[in-house]
Structure formats: structure tokens, C-alpha cells
Amino acid sequence: MKLLITGGAGFVGSSLAIALKMNYPDYEIFAMDNLKRRGSELNLSRLKKQGVEFIHGDIRSKEDFDALPGVDAVIEASAEPSVLAGLDGTPDYLINTNLFGTVNCLNYALKHKAAFLFLSTSRVYPIKTLEGLNFVEEETRFALADEQPVPGASSKGIAEDFPLDGPRSLYGTTKLASELLIQEYNEFYGLKTVINRCGVITGPWQMGKVDQGVMVLWIAKHYFDQQLGYFGYGGTGKQIRDMLHVADLYRLIDWQLHNLDQVNGQILNAGGGLESSASLQELTKICQEVTGKTIPIKAVAETRTADIRLYVTDNTKVTALTGWKPEIGIRQIVEEIAAWLAENEEDLKPILM
């Protein structure tokens, strides 16, 4: 099999490329990336060591695709992933990458009759609807109530039939627009596709920032003895997310690649689920236990733009279709990331501090 992974030097793309090459040494895997994100250059030697061919290219450029060899499948893992991207009034890079870039990827896949696996995001779900959900305040976290005002929401989390009306961030909108186009290519061009709406993805080799990659950021700030803050919702740190280890995501992508007919045309939520969820307060406690460090955390009551109180993935549909469910919990994720920081401290310090 020949595969193209876009965003192939990014955290998710490189992790998938390396895992696929390790498990299928005979596969030809091309990792395409524009190396815009700081830290992605550290993955080039890792890709080369495993025998993944790196191609310096930009999905915004149709010409860069013209120079690529044909493949059997495309894993579209490229994105401007920040939920705050474009909110400063200049959304051009965001839209050109996340929407028009996807069009170039789709046309390339169509040209070579390649399957198309798309990594979308839970951020396609509208902010105000999520914020209007019924919740209970527990000692260390907010939790979703059983009874909800809209379909697709329960104490288990958010399912695929959650309403899509309303603003969701420019980032989420570009991903949803891409989803709509993918469905058209599937229906009218016969392109085999699957869309995965991922929750928070994390693990070693993620270059965490405040607006994307919060898990690594939280652990790194503890590791390097720096300050953090509980922003919004009263400054209590009770807002929650579920965390999906990139190795768990790989297992799903691997299954889909080799059983695409069973998920062709599907939209699937994929996240850590309730079992692998944590509030910032709970995450802080685990970070303290794993790193042995306690750092100052300020409380800021004011809620930031585009933030949400809670998001947990309901994996019921993807588990029923594929048998997949995440296996790696929060503590193991923290331990792995802390070990990675220790092993690569000199390289990571200027990026993550």
C-alpha cells in the first residue's frame, strides 16, 4: 500500500506515519508538511529513521500535489489547529489551509482513486449549544447531566446527532465546511471517505500551546516549574475535556484503512470518552503526583473567547461500527509525556517553556 499523510511532520501526522511504517514495513508512506508549526522540524529525523519519505509541500498549493506520486489512500491530518485562529480579523491562512487545502487533497485523491480519511474536530459542534447543556457541579469537575435540551447529548458525552446550527469558531467552521465537501465527493464522485471528529488528541511529540495542545502544555509547565492559570468558569479549574492518546487514534485509523468499506461515508466521533476525561483541577493533581512539583496556578474568573465548559466524546457509534475504543487513560498519558520531556529536555525547553 502507498499512503500520503498531509501534515505529516506535525504531531498527529508524524505519529500516524511512524506507527504505520513500524507495523507495515513494506508500505510506502509519504509525509507532506510545510513545517510552519514550531517544533515540527524535530520530527524529520524521526520520520527518516523509520523510512518514511518526507515531502516539503503545502496543501494550499495545487502545484505541490502535481509533483506527488499516486497513492492508495490519503490521511488528511493537516490543519491550522488553533480554535483562536482567525479571530484577530485575518482568517486567510486558516481558510486557505483548512478549507481550500482540503479541496486540493480531495482532488488529488480523486485523481488517483485513493481512499480519503479525514481528521476533523469536535469543534464543529456550536459553542452556544454546548454552553447551554445541563450540567452538575461536582467537587473537582463539571459533569453533563442525563437530561439534556437537545439530541446528541447525555451524561456519556456528545454524539454525532448533536445539532450543528450556530457559530462554532472559524476553525470549527472550516473543518465542518470540509466535511460537507467530503460528503459530496463521496456521493457524487464515488470517493471512499471516512470523517473522524476527534476530541483532544495528545501524547509525546506534541508541541503544546495554550490554544492547542493543552495537555502537553499543562504537563510541561509543571515539569519546567512555570506558572499556569484556571481561566473562566469562576477560576475553579472544573472545566473538563476528554483526552485521546495518539496511539489509540492510530489503532482506529489502522482499522479504517484496512476495512474502509465498513465505514465508507461515515462521520464518527472519536475521543477519549468519559473514562479518559479530566478537569484542569484533576489534571493538576495528576501532574503534581507524576512530576513531584507544585507550581503556582492563578484563578481568573472571566471566560475566554470561544471556550467551552465541558466536552466529552460519546464513542457509542464508532465502537458499534468498528469495535474500537480508547485504552489509554489520563495518568498513563501524563506519565508518558513527562518521560518524553525528560528524555528530550534540551530540544523541547526552548519550544515549550
Rank of each mutant, 00 (worst) to 15 (best):
G13A: 07
S14I: 05
A17P: 13
I18A: 10
K21F: 07
M22K: 15
D26E: 13
Y27N: 13
M32H: 14
L35H: 09
S40A: 12
N43T: 09
G51C: 07
V52N: 10
V52L: 13
I55V: 14
K62P: 09
E63N: 07
E63C: 05
A73C: 13
V74R: 03
E76V: 10
A85P: 06
L87A: 15
P91K: 08
T97M: 11
G101F: 00
V103I: 10
N104A: 04
C105G: 12
C105R: 08
L106F: 10
L106R: 10
Y108T: 12
A109G: 09
L117R: 13
K128S: 14
N134A: 07
V136G: 15
V136T: 15
T140K: 14
T140M: 05
F142R: 10
A143Y: 05
L144R: 01
D146N: 15
P149A: 13
S154W: 01
A159M: 05
F162C: 02
P167F: 07
P167T: 00
K175R: 04
A177P: 01
E179T: 02
L181T: 00
Q183M: 12
Y185Q: 13
G190W: 05
I195Q: 05
I201C: 12
T202N: 15
Q206Y: 06
Q206F: 10
M207Q: 07
G208S: 08
D211S: 08
Q212N: 09
V214T: 11
V214H: 06
M215L: 14
W218A: 15
I219H: 04
I219S: 02
H222T: 05
F231S: 10
Y233A: 05
K238G: 06
A247R: 14
D248R: 11
L257P: 01
L257I: 02
I267C: 05
I267Y: 00
A270K: 04
G272L: 04
E275F: 05
S277Y: 06
S279A: 11
Q281V: 00
E282F: 12
I297K: 11
K298G: 10
A301F: 07
T305A: 10
D314V: 07
T316W: 07
T319K: 15
L321C: 14
G323V: 09
W324R: 14
P326W: 13
Q332W: 09
E335V: 08
A339D: 13
A339L: 07
W340H: 15
W340F: 13
A342S: 14
D347T: 01
L348F: 01
